[in-house]
Amino acid sequence: MRLKARQKPNAVVPTASMADIVFLLIIFFVLTFNVDVDKAQVVLPKTGLRFEVPKKSAVISVTEAGQIRVSSGEETSTTVSGYEDVLAFAAEQVARDAEKAFILKADARVPYQTIDRILDSLKQARASTIYLLSDQETVEGAG
């Protein structure tokens, strides 16, 4: 009896769907793309309630060491030397756009007196809304 010739498995890796998968990944990254204007490393306070901050809001960051950086939301943040500079920065932003929102990205361990001076500068500059940037609070024991 003559045996059937053994079927040789195809040695080609099917890559036709590869482009589809990577395009899906690209679409995901394009949609979630967000260039951080401020690279300051801070431990944000944790809150249960959080709201989306408006895009292109001005950012004021305060590190644990007390270094203050500001950004209009369109360019990378720069270090400022004192609270007078924060006031001047905020006044300039409000003069350009009276409804400009400000994001306060401050380390949770910073003494409140630093934040008080910054909030005061923003109030004096007549800022309308300030967002206190925070991380999501996790349920005790879960995280």
């Binding site: 990254f29 793309f33 967000n34 260039v35 923003l122 809304t129 206190l132």
Partner: peptide, 24 residues
């Protein structure tokens, strides 16, 4: 497309864009 993915992965930051609003 892989190069594009690498670019987006490196430059993308899942920045904390949420917080408590505080009307002054």
């Amino acid at each position: 497309t892989f190069l594009l993915i690498i670019f987006f992965m490196v430059t993308n930051t899942f920045a904390a864009t949420r917080g408590l609003d505080f009307a002054v």
